[in-house]
Amino acid sequence: MSLLEVRNLRKAYGALKVTDDLDLTVEEGEIHAIIGPNGAGKSTLIAQLSGESLSDGGSVRFADAEMMGMAMHRRVRAGISRSFQITSILPGFTALENVATAVQARTGSSFRFFSPVDQENRLNDQALEALDRVGIADRAFFRAGSLSHGEKRQLELAIALATRPRLLLLDEPLAGTSGQEAERLVEVMHSLRGQVTLVLIEHDMAAVFSLADRVSVLVYGQIIATGPPDIIRADPKVRQAYLGEESAGAGDVAD
């Protein structure tokens, strides 16, 4: 049984079919990259899988349970967590509070009104651990809004990890990060292999081909090919659909 089985997933904005009878299978423990030209529907797919936006039809089975029609916060509790293409954090909170809030969401009731939350060591310890894992523990007490762009990406990954997901959906985690920050993030994703199943949208092909166990190519709302990186790289259909439109220099994918 696969961890995630998506069948005939559909989503249209008016006449535009953004997700067009899409099938996708993700195995437990793998790092599964989804690539495709701009406008292929990658972020929409993530939004549909996470429950942020409603699907028009189809089925999303996760760990043997149907997710269709389930709200985002319930899917998080079921074990599907995500990051956003455009960084989404709590800017007025410290980095530590950002992550501690995510820990709080899965540990105990939040209808507690009297005891100060910033003194709950269990929350803070786990939050600090997650910050350390992504490499920004030294920023714990900085306001999240004041962090650099790359640090915010790292923070967002720490927040997602703090929900203890079985499946982590990452929407362009490397977008806009510096070389060093990107390296650190790739390293973190490598370290997650086998612990968390990753579905990764990424434009950085070097990162994709070094990380992914399998790659799926999404074009016009459909997966046109799925397979190990080497096979995908050599697939003529992929070269035509993806490289033909996206870049003159085939080097992007061939690297």
Binding site: H73, R77, R82, S88, L90, T101, Q104, R106, S110, R112
Partner: peptide
């Protein structure tokens, strides 16, 4: 409190709060 943190977090970014559960 815990409750206050959820309330404030929702003011800061409701989508993020949903995305952590």
């Amino acid at each position: 409190s815990r409750f206050g943190r959820v309330l404030t977090g929702t003011r800061e970014n409701p989508v993020r709060m949903r995305a952590i559960g």
